[in-house]
Design a binder for these strands. Structure first.
Length: 604
RNA sequence: CGGGGCGUAGCGCAGUUUGGUUUAGCGCGCACGGUUUGGGUCCGUGAGGUCCGCGGUUCAAAUCCGCGCGCCCCGACCA
């Protein structure tokens, strides 16, 4: 490609509405242009890089038996109604009516469509297992797009869907994806870790997220440097310090004026936080009556199947509530803090709450509460607390489970080493869906006993644009981008220092032609610009190899070769440049290839 | 959706507080001419603006007021 013909141009200054380094560099280098919040055009250079990522994805998906298809972006509402997500998902899913007034949605993922396909195509266990995937535009009306391509509303995603007869088959495909994803990201030059994750709105039994560790990341990860444990904070666990065994003592009311926080309480009573019970009041939006939607005829009914329920969560004073765990424990669609009025309505008191004697509330106690005797809790009366509160004797939780948040310094659940928290960008995820969608939509197969059984499914996604942004985010220096050879829009950037010397242009033209002829992808800066401009643009654009053709070198019969990621510039005789470039490309590719290794499967 | 910030030429900004001398400027970029040719050369000429939109106040609005729209950041949210 001749730069004189290129559709995009570089910017000396980043647009003022950019913040993330990847966003700034991709904009400045002309890889992307923004149309609206979370809506971008991929310009020629950006499009080429994205296409390369997609091709890597294809190769790895094909390698594990994937068959590429393409499903529609616009879906009739009915399949989404069948699974209930039409009602469960809020304004993040955009809906509209077609000309006949039929409800339509812009697909934000494709479980419904692919399950519809499966029930049409798959009849027998003999047709299983199968794996299909597609690379398609998705629309999610995210309330807060940010950081350029990191979090957008319209984006391209690879999603694959596996179909199996049983859990064992699903596990096999799940593990195949686990390794394929590492291969894909490693081939893109991305350093990722797999962390155990919440299944969120997808449902399902097991899920991993593939994370690029980066400060710009929005997910908090809990990691163990000793044994490799890694979970999203939403699901991370830890070894809770046990409470000393004590015989239960009689409950005792104490005056604690103006003591409303755990800090105040521990100071006032001179006790450790672990001897206190912390109350957290939430309102949960929960489904009213269970609707196992096999045949949901009355849609309106289901729409109204949502009510608010008061959640009284209790954790030990030395721990924090993890809202994701809490929401899962009570099967809530959403949680919000309760108001003071709502707290008083159940018989509790803000700042002095305890589960003793409250009514119309679902009491959820953390495991550690049950194991910890003689805690100090509120008296549900302003200015008073209770000593020696004991679970079972003084109150009975409705649910006992782990609802605490793991954090920096907690003990690793596997080895006890101190945990570390870090930030990550999710570039991929894998979910064991099980039969949630197939059962809801009637996607069944006949097994060898002629019994119809729901197909066991998995769902696996990769954000293509987000992956590109992550590469840009992690591969750059003060001068610009530094693309891995595998996804660089072009492998070589020829900088022709054309001046009065006509030979330079002739040699550069020939070099461009010769390299192109042997299959090397070349971006050729043939513009009438000063050397400084060309060098700076070459650095900004970040192609892995740069060839400088100038009269200074030509006098000695050489051109200069430079790797973008290194300082050295090497003079190469003109008659050796083709082979040298090919060798350098091979070397760069080998460096990436060396990163593509088998990764042992970890549950978390 | 809550809090904050911003919206003036393709990009970056000044001007807005204190309305009028601003036919709205500056740098970069762009066009033309010349110059230069190994790290954003230099000189000259020139084009380019609904000052986000609508409404209001005023003799007079980029500037004050109201409403709306858009974008960015923090939070809520996020398959």
């Amino acid at each position: 490609m001749r730069m004189s013909q290129l559709f995009s141009h570089t910017l000396r200054d980043a647009p003022s509405n950019t913040q993330a380094i990847s966003h700034q560099l991709l904009e400045r280098a002309g890889f992307i242009r923004q149309l609206g919040a979370g809506i971008f055009t991929a310009m020629p250079l950006g499009h080429r890089a994205l296409a390369k990522i997609e091709q890597i994805v294809r190769e790895e998906m094909n390698a594990i038996g994937g068959q590429e298809i393409k499903m529609p972006v616009v879906n009739p509402a009915d399949v989404w109604q069948e699974t209930g997500r039409w009602y469960a998902i809020g304004s993040e899913m955009s809906r509209f009516q077609d000309r006949t007034g039929s409800e339509m949605v812009l697909a934000m993922t494709h479980e419904e469509v692919v399950t519809d396909l499966a029930r049409r195509e798959i009849r027998s266990y003999r047709q299983l297992p199968r794996l299909v995937y597609h690379i398609q535009t998705k629309w999610r009306d995210d309330p807060r797009p940010r950081a350029g391509l990191i979090r957008v509303r319209e984006f391209t995603m690879k999603d694959s869907y596996s179909f199996d007869v049983d859990e064992a088959g699903l596990d096999q495909q799940y593990r195949a994806h686990y390794q394929a994803y590492f291969n894909i990201f490693h081939r893109c030059g991305l350093d990722v870790i797999a962390v155990g994750s919440d299944t969120g709105m997808m449902g399902g039994s097991l899920a991993h997220e593939f994370m690029v560790l980066a400060p710009i990341g929005e997910d908090t990860l809990i990691l163990c440097d000793s044994c490799g444990y890694a979970d999203n904070r939403q699901v991370a666990t830890f070894q809770k310090p046990p409470a000393p065994a004590e015989a239960p003592r009689p409950i005792e009311k104490v005056a604690t004026p103006d003591v409303t926080t755990i800090d105040d309480l521990t100071a006032f009573l001179e006790i450790p936080p672990a001897k206190t019970a912390k109350a957290v009041f939430m309102m949960a939006e929960v489904a009213g009556q269970k609707v196992q939607s096999q045949e949901v005829e009355s849609q309106e009914d289901e729409e109204q199947e949502s009510e608010e329920r008061f959640i009284f969560a209790v954790v030990r004073g030395d721990m924090e509530v993890n809202e994701t765990k809490l929401a899962n424990a009570v099967q809530a669609r959403a949680l919000r803090p309760a108001t003071d009025e709502e707290i008083r309505a159940i018989g509790a008191e803000p700042g002095y709450g305890s589960p003793i004697g409250v009514h119309d509330a679902l009491i959820v106690a953390d495991e550690a509460i049950v194991e910890s005797p003689n805690l100090v809790a509120g008296a549900n009366e302003a200015g008073f607390h209770l000593r020696n509160v004991n679970t079972g004797r003084d109150f009975t939780p409705d649910i006992v489970t782990d609802i605490t948040a793991a954090g920096e310094g907690n003990a690793c659940p596997q080895c006890g080493h101190a945990l570390r928290a870090d930030r990550g960008v999710e570039v991929g995820n894998i979910f064991k869906l099980g039969t949630r969608y197939s059962a809801a939509m009637g996607a069944t197969f006949k097994d060898s006993e002629r019994v119809a059984r729901p197909i066991v499914m998995g769902s696996y996604g990769i954000g293509i644009g987000r992956a590109l942004a992550c590469v840009a985010e992690s591969h750059n220096d003060e001068y610009g981008l530094i693309w891995p050879i595998t996804i660089a829009p072009y492998q070589v950037h020829i900088t022709a220092l054309t001046g009065r010397d006509e030979e330079v242009a002739q040699v550069a033209d020939q070099l461009y032609a010769d390299l192109s002829a042997v299959g090397v992808e070349v971006l050729y800066d043939d513009r009438d610009e000063s050397p400084g401009v060309k060098f700076n643009d070459a650095d900004l654009l970040g192609m892995p190899l740069r060839i400088t053709v100038g009269s200074r070198g030509l006098k000695k019969g050489v051109v200069e070769l430079k790797r973008r990621d290194r300082k050295e510039r090497t003079p190469v005789p003109l008659d050796e440049i083709i082979e040298t470039v090919q060798a350098e490309i091979a070397a760069l590719a080998a460096e990436i290839e060396a990163q593509v290794v088998d990764v042992p499967f970890r549950e978390s």
